[in-house]
Write a protein that binds this DNA or RNA. Sequence first.
DNA 1: AACGAAGTCAACCGCTAATTT
DNA 2: GAAATTAGCGGTTGACTTCGT
Length: 208
Amino acid sequence: MALTNDQPDNRVKTKGAWTAEEDQKLAHCIDIHGAKRWKTIALKSGLNRCGKSCRLRWLNYLRPNIKRGNITDAEEDMIIRLHKLLGNRWSLIAGRLPGRTDNEIKNYWNSHLSRKMNEDKTPLTSAAQEAMSKNSWKDISLSEEDNAKEVANSEINFNVDELANSEINFNVDEFFDFSSEGSDHLERVNKFLGLEEDPCLLRGGKHE
DNA sequence: AACGAAGTCAACCGCTAATTT
DNA sequence: GAAATTAGCGGTTGACTTCGT
């Protein structure tokens, strides 16, 4: 196997919590060199940290527009619905929640939502159910009887990977890729997720 | 007040995918 | 095309905090 960027050099690297001073050094270095080539950043910053650790710190805490804590009801609802659809694909879920990181979503799910979901099997919003039953997005062709039954069921719980592997043409990555699709597609996805209520999320997560 | 259990969350680890040489 | 390097992901760990007794 190839070497990875966390492959040890001979010096023992610092581990554990970051100090304010380390944060400052890292932010300064990224300001100069950009948020890439993390091994280089780790060296140039003068931090005794591996590149991987620097990257994680930047992505989860230091980069601009990070939101910390106070996950709103709307965000929580979104996480639940996205998790139903995507499973533990945290980065994809986080990608639909501006300012949130995959790590934060993952932690929030594991500490708050997984238990909550076990307690009450929260159904999708009526809008989401309606969208599901209308089968209104282009790539999910639930033509098979079993799938149609499942959609009609209020406790929607289909496995995306199974769908992706079946003859049913459903590509999760494509479904959540808004780079090349028009606003139509985004609206369909948001409608599927029941996001009409939240104009911010409806804009694809762009806050003014 | 003391202590253990449970909860939370930042950070690390191992791995694969993507990119560069 | 192969090898090396880098980026990114999800699972897991462990330190710290909060809660209950």
